[in-house]
Design a protein around this nucleic acid. Structure first.
Lengths: 361, 361
DNA sequence: CACGCCTCAGTTAGCGCTAACATGCCGCGC
DNA sequence: GCGCGGCATGTTAGCGCTAACTGAGGCGTG
């Protein structure tokens, strides 16, 4: 791009050539199509043809137009184009707390994929996780004229909110339960929990305790379900699960409870942050990991490999999730009808140092 | 144009009542201002007045118009409005790796603040951290018609790229060094490093070792500078700093090096993730924390309080950073000229269990 | 009672672009 | 020689909205 240098504040001199106009008008009005046309000696429509790559333009004319655009530092006005074509080339993403690793990574994957497809992403983050705030965000994005909406909705109520969602806007949900109106892209939480639990049982543990996330998160429910099903299938006792809130603090508090019970030799924690708290509580209680107690987390946050001991956990490929959901949204936009739900993305068990054979009794 | 109802596949019958059209056209063309006007028995301009809260509308008329909007499910077309007003109510954010806690939180703060001010945020994340990719992202956002741009630019080269940036778009840099063309909002990294280092010296440590971030990050440089200046001022030896890359892995590797040197009793690590690696390395080497070695991190990520031991660190208020930079950008847009750089946001030392008095020698 | 002025509404003219049609020109076949 | 079709371009008409003017009616003022 050559235009970089003709916009700066320094270019004051008038060297007589029309080229200097780009400089002097720096803070004037931006050039429009007909300005380009005038300079190139063609109509604005021909300029439009050049921009949109119409085949019916003589190469020579095309050259002249390009030169004129260059000279004026012309850039097409996307708003005007969007008005007439009805396509804004923007997509909306509704997300809760993009500070967390999961949503942040998903958003990142979405953005990357969108960029590759020539779309822009408008984010609307939620103040609170409830039905009306989701509908609200969706509504705001529609008002803004997005072509489609992606909802990162790990929360049950958020998922329900999608039912209120008007059908005239393409919409895809990521990380939501399968029970709602919109097509869903998600990681197979149940499978992840099954793998984690099975891993612990395979190590010889009599049964596996569980710390869940907040009950209104779909992921919490599904992980719990996978854990419970696995224990049932194995015909072992299903201990009462402890309910956390995803925070390391909750993990710590609940970990202290568990550490008092000598029966507890294996814990499946619903996310890595809580698992961190559990590790700490067990450590403080003098319980050896994995000698006396084994711990499995969920997510595989970048820190997990450096916990003490390194955390065995279930990896979710959030970036891939983002890409997939974007692809699905684009498909929905193109075909004009809601796509069906995609196959679940399989998670992967990453075995590290926080799990080991059950202690001899 | 009356063509609204001859577009849909279903709209064949003429049912006479305008009211019922709202239903039948559900999946047809979206209603526009004149549809509302017609239904309410006023001109489209009066509808516009109602929407924009003009005082010169009789309450009764206003009522009728509102009712008509309601009935048709009318929503104003933001694109058309943007075209005529020249204001898109969107801002662009350029950011590198929004997967990391810092940028993610800053983005979150920005988005919140933008929402409060009635703006939307378009994100453009960077593939790579270099000059051209930043200019590129800025360019893309301009093309999209944003009113202003916020660059989260912790990287030196990214900061330099701002120099290439055209002056005709309001632009604010967050987390950048002060040396560039754009106004900057940032946390006082030097002060943070000084506090951390001073804290360790005050505990009686002879000197303080340092693990830096990648040298091309401004934050790395400033933290290193604050650390070095403090040691110099105290008249103590300045050990050669070790260079990391922000990752826990790097912290671990470098921590292992440090753990071999019995002289090392205090380490200031440039971020919490690397500090985690250091804790682990020291632990494996059998060095007691904080008995034998004290460790201080930087950032205060949510996990830090649950490391073993809980990490003493320097807290940066990323959300506040986001808010401030957004405020500054809006000011720039309103006043039409680039604001001057804001005073630095002071960080806060959070003392936890990873630091203690120097061991007796 | 004429005049000015305010209130409330309507009419008109774009914003910058694309889509659809119109036009002039060329070469071709009969 | 003349019509005909395709190419390269111009002209016109909007997209849905706001801004700016226009106009009708009501009311206070000298």
């Amino acid at each position: 791009m050559e235009s970089g240098d003709d916009i700066g504040p320094a270019g004051s001199g008038d060297d007589g050539l029309p080229a200097s106009r780009a400089r002097t008008r720096a803070r004037t009005r931006a050039p429009v199509m007909s300005d380009v046309g005038r300079l190139a000696g063609v109509s604005h429509q021909t300029v439009s043809r050049v921009i949109n790559g119409s085949p019916h333009v003589r190469p020579e004319t095309r050259e002249r137009v390009m030169a004129a655009m260059q000279e004026l530092g012309y850039r097409p006005n996307p708003v005007a184009r969007a008005l007439v074509t009805g396509r804004s080339k923007t997509l909306g993403v509704v997300s809760f707390d993009t500070t967390l690793y999961g949503p942040a990574s998903t958003l990142f994957g979405i953005e990357r994929a969108a960029h590759e497809s020539g779309y822009f992403i408008i984010v609307a983050s939620l103040e609170a996780l409830n039905r009306s705030s989701v509908s609200d965000a969706v509504e705001r994005l529609r008002r803004q004229g997005v072509e489609g909406i992606l909802v990162i909705a790990p929360h049950a109520e958020a998922g329900e909110a999608l039912l209120d969602t008007p059908f005239d806007v393409p919409l895809v949900a990521a990380e939501a339960g399968p029970e709602h109106g919109a097509p869903v892209v998600a990681v197979d939480q149940v499978a992840g929990a099954v793998n984690a639990t099975r891993h612990l049982l395979d190590l010889g543990h009599r049964t596996v305790w569980h710390i869940t996330g907040p009950p209104d998160f779909i992921e919490s429910r599904q992980r719990r379900q996978g854990w419970q099903a696995t224990l049932r299938a194995a015909g072992v006792e299903v201990p009462e699960p402890l309910v956390g809130d995803w925070s390391p603090r909750a993990g710590y508090e609940l970990g202290r409870q568990l550490s008092r019970d000598p029966e507890v030799t294996a814990v499946f924690v619903a996310n890595d942050q809580m698992a961190l708290g559990v590790l700490r509580a067990l450590h403080e209680a003098g319980r050896d990991i994995p000698g006396e107690v084994s711990v499995v987390g969920f997510d595989d946050i970048p820190e997990a490999a450096y916990f003490q001991p390194p955390l065995t956990t279930v990896r979710q490929d959030f970036i891939e999730m983002g890409r997939r959901s974007l692809r699905m949204l684009l498909r929905t936009i193109e075909t004009g009808r809601r796509a069906s739900t995609e196959p679940l993305v399989p998670p992967e068990l990453i075995v590290r140092g926080s799990t080991g054979p059950a202690p001899a009794r």
